[in-house]
Design a protein around this nucleic acid. Structure first.
Length: 282
DNA sequence: CTAGGATCCTGTCAGC
DNA sequence: TGCTGACAGGATCCTA
């Protein structure tokens, strides 16, 4: 699922392709996922692309921004002059670059296009004033983010105040921003912590291990341009490769790669699939 | 504050 | 082969 590394990969791609383009038109085919006034975008230039947790902000010269949350299956895909040697498009682009799952099309100058595709239609796009981006509901409530505000001290503090199980806490965007199911599972395996463990009962040394594991798996995810599980693709329509390096996520029934004597188990926590090794995660 | 369930949506897959 | 139903999942909302 698109989490911090996947959304950061999208951000890097959009920054590379979109900056300098002018938005000439916006075609909204599915009004449900689009809010705000498209007129606030027309004729203005794209200046930068930011990320807040799992949300993207495309900032324009008109002092308005396009916020995009891709949720599970959203795919912002670029075609145009900034894309050198048009890459072969992944079959994870369901329905094609422009097809029945294309809900919004941004027409750019110089024959450029940004397509927003989304099979499940859980994602959303909002046009807001750039000065209001950080005051916008979802973004305003985000907790500190790994690689930004989140330090070990803050992390310890967050855990010490929570009686929720650690897996659910890690995925709570209001506590820590950017972590989702894949990286929560892998970070807990790496730091040998049982995902059911109550957050404030984890000893201090293990909290440090977990903090470092989170940074490590997120970095690995970014390095591999995200995990193309489900329908994730980058803005050029190609896949990332972290899915080839999952530690425990999706590995139910396989032998734990560390202790090599126990099978990875799948349970549900907070309604989400949770994978762990009952032998080495305590 | 926390837990659990329903909701949104549709492709995929198991079972018959 | 073809149909039916269960399932997945980020975030939100509601109830307990």
């Amino acid at each position: 699922m698109p989490e911090l590394p996947e959304v950061e990969t999208i951000r890097i791609g959009l920054e590379k392709y979109l900056v300098g383009h002018i938005v000439n038109d916006v075609i909204v085919k599915t009004p449900k996922i689009f809010s705000g006034n498209k007129k606030d975008l027309l004729g203005s230039k794209i200046i930068k692309v930011r990320r807040f947790g799992k949300v993207l902000s495309i900032d324009l010269s008109s002092s308005f921004s396009i916020l995009i949350h891709v949720k599970l299956t959203g795919q912002p895909i670029y075609r145009g002059p900034n894309l050198k040697n048009s890459p072969r498009v992944s079959n994870k682009v369901i329905g094609g670059i422009q097809g029945k799952h294309t809900h919004v099309i941004f027409k750019l100058d110089r024959n450029g296009f940004l397509y927003y595709n989304d099979v499940r239609k859980f994602g959303w796009i909002k046009v807001v004033k750039t000065s209001d981006v950080e005051k916008t509901g979802f973004i305003a409530k985000l907790g500190p983010e790994p690689f930004k505000g989140l330090t070990l001290e803050i992390f310890k503090n967050i855990l010490s105040k929570s009686k929720t199980n650690i897996k659910v806490l890690l995925m709570n965007q209001e506590k820590i921003a950017g972590i989702g199911n894949i990286y929560a599972n892998d970070a807990l395996w790496l730091s040998k912590i049982d995902p059911r463990k109550v957050s404030n009962s984890i000893p201090e040394s293990k909290v440090k291990d977990l903090y470092e594991a989170i940074l490590k798996v997120l970095k690995e995810g970014i390095k591999r341009r995200g995990a193309s599980e489900l329908t994730f693709v980058t803005p050029d329509g190609t896949e990332g490769t972290y899915q080839k390096h999952f530690l425990v996520y999706g590995q139910e029934g396989k032998t734990c790669p560390r202790c090599k004597n126990t099978k990875i188990v799948k349970i549900k926590l907070g309604g989400r699939g949770t994978y762990f090794c009952p032998n080495c995660q305590k």
